[in-house]
């Protein structure tokens, strides 16, 4: 397993590389558009290199040299699990459409993660969907539709 320190240094390195790539890419821009991203991209890349050098050689590590923990706290969930729930939510949207996906996600999340009862979960989900429809009509918003909701709508004519 990587240590916290190693991951921190890797993060700095990735940021530095991205900034360097942006500075490099900026050279292709028109004259006046080039200076700002080129200059700051380059300064950022150099700064990232300095920070990595400092962390590796000169100073004490910026974060404790402990293994990266993905374990959840007592009663909680690991960050990866939380991101997996986000992925499920956004994954449901193209299938069910935003309002329905929110309802399904809310029920599933409350049942599995919060340990709520069915009635509370369903009332909560209905309120969430109500909020979406209310705000949608107030602000004249069109929510992303899913193929299931599109199929239902086309059947209804």
């Amino acid at each position: 397993m990587f240590s916290e320190r190693a991951v921190s240094i890797a993060l700095t390195a990735v940021v530095g590389i991205v900034l360097l790539a942006m500075a490099w890419g900026a050279q292709d821009f028109l004259r006046y558009s080039r200076h700002f991203p080129f200059t700051f991209g380059l300064i950022g890349a150099v700064l990232a290199a300095v920070i990595i050098f400092r962390d590796l050689v000169v100073a004490r590590p910026p974060v404790p040299d402990e293994p990266v923990g993905d374990a959840a706290s007592e009663g909680g969930h690991s960050p990866l699990q939380v991101f997996a729930w986000f992925a499920l939510y956004f994954g449901l949207v193209p299938v069910l459409g935003f309002p329905l996906a929110t309802g399904v996600f809310t029920v599933a999340f409350l049942r599995v993660v919060a340990g709520a009862g069915w009635i509370l979960a369903i009332v909560y989900a209905a309120a969430a969907m109500g909020f979406i429809f209310f705000m949608g009509s107030m602000l004249n918003m069109e929510w992303p539709t899913g193929f299931v909701s599109r199929a239902i709508m086309s059947r209804m004519g």
């Binding site: 959840a72 706290s73 007592e74 009663g75 909680g76 969930h77 690991s78 960050p79 939380v82 991101f83 729930w85 993660v113």
Partner: peptide, 9 residues
Amino acid sequence: IVDLLASGR
């Protein structure tokens, strides 16, 4: 949101 869910509190 991630950290609060991770803490479960």
